[in-house]
Design a protein around this nucleic acid. Structure first.
Lengths: 214, 214
DNA sequence: GATAGTATGAAACGCTTGTTTAAAACAATT
DNA sequence: AATTGTTTTAAACAAGCGTTTCATACTATC
């Protein structure tokens, strides 16, 4: 990233949008930190909202690059693919340890989706969801209907996201020692894979659990 | 709740704060919906923030009433308890149907807590989590270590929360027809129960999946 | 070196926000 | 009925916001 006014703005806006949200972040503060003129946002991006969209895209692309090296490896088995997917997800989009503004701002979008979010999901998230769907269709019997595969996909993603969204709650509910010894990103990812594989294995014999729970 | 100006304000402010957040909610809109004069907020509550705190307290008390009715405890099977827990969580705590602004505003606080009411959120979440832990310890073998039970609990809650937090993502990724026919709150809750029971059943034979995935 | 197109700068505009004001309406007590 | 304190009303206020303006500085092309 260079040093043009446009790039200075993108770099300055990220942390501010992340910590304060779209509404509470002011153009004046962004320009102040970027050390550019107040009118620059409107000149280079049109308005505040289009700057926000660009920042969002940049944040997401940064997150993707983090895991790019890992996910490009050739696929051996679907189980191994799922393992890689979950690990990438936990490390990339969630990155439990870090408080980087990239993950903050994406989290904010999930909680309170702006109109910009739709665009982001379409362009950036859908490919990863479809990759997960391809993994699942290899893991599941062929007669499992698509909506069932979708729900299973959301269940897997949901677990990953919660460890980020609710990490504050996790900290409150369990002891610090337990968190230190058993809740590293690696361990959490392993658990999610194991939990989901068990559930998927069970999905082949649905009637068993239907009879239990029904 | 009566019909005084103060009470009209509390009733009107709840859903607005819940859907828009503190900053984006305007006192003009609140007074408009409450059909009271613009100056009423400052007269009866001092300022906008103290109105917000009162609304939060009200939401919390409402949720406590719900939790009280939930702890009508004993059930024959832990499976049935889990089913009830998930259904309650999806229907009331999360309220996919938008009838519960109380949960929305608390979820908002739980993700970005305002300094005033951090412990308010704590008190709200912990009883739910401990209730789930009691269910899980009946569902799982005794030798399953506590941190494993905790992770399984987070996995279940994570699925529930994701359908709330990531509902925008869900809407974009699947077709409207599929959402209408297969993603009602009832169907989602059923799926989560089934998925989690299958995973729990598998947790008794962990080594199987360890050997598959490792 | 003149010129056209682009980028920056300082100031102001128009609008919305939460809040305040002061008068009017109401309620209750004497 | 007069007086007191409380509540409601309409209007205005001051501050902050995103955005626009227009003059100026830069940069590349001829």
């Amino acid at each position: 990233m260079g040093d043009s006014t446009r790039e200075r703005l993108l770099r300055a806006a990220g942390p501010i949008f992340a910590s304060k949200g779209f509404r509470d972040a002011t153009v004046r503060e962004i320009c102040d930190r970027a050390e550019v003129n107040l009118a620059s946002v409107n000149y280079h991006f049109g308005d505040k909202e289009r700057l926000y969209v660009e920042v969002l895209k940049y944040a997401h692309s940064q997150r993707m690059n983090l895991a790019a090296s890992r996910s490009r490896q050739p696929s051996s088995s679907p189980v191994e693919d799922l393992r890689r997917f979950v690990h990438d997800f936990v490390f990339r989009a969630l990155a439990m340890e870090d408080d980087s503004w990239e993950s903050q701002i994406l989290l904010r979008e999930f909680l309170k989706p702006s109109t910009a979010c739709r665009e982001l999901v379409q362009e950036n998230i859908r490919p990863h969801f479809e990759a997960l769907m391809r993994i699942l269709s290899r893991l599941l019997p062929e007669d499992v209907p698509p909506e069932k595969r979708h729900k299973i996909g959301f269940s897997i993603i949901g677990q990953c996201v919660y460890y980020r969204v609710g990490h504050m709650v996790v900290e409150v509910l369990i002891s610090p020692e337990e968190k230190a010894t058993h809740f590293s990103a690696e361990q959490v990812a392993d658990h999610i894979v194991q939990f989901s594989l068990a559930a998927i294995a069970g999905a082949a014999h649905v009637e068993t659990f239907e009879s239990i729970s029904g």
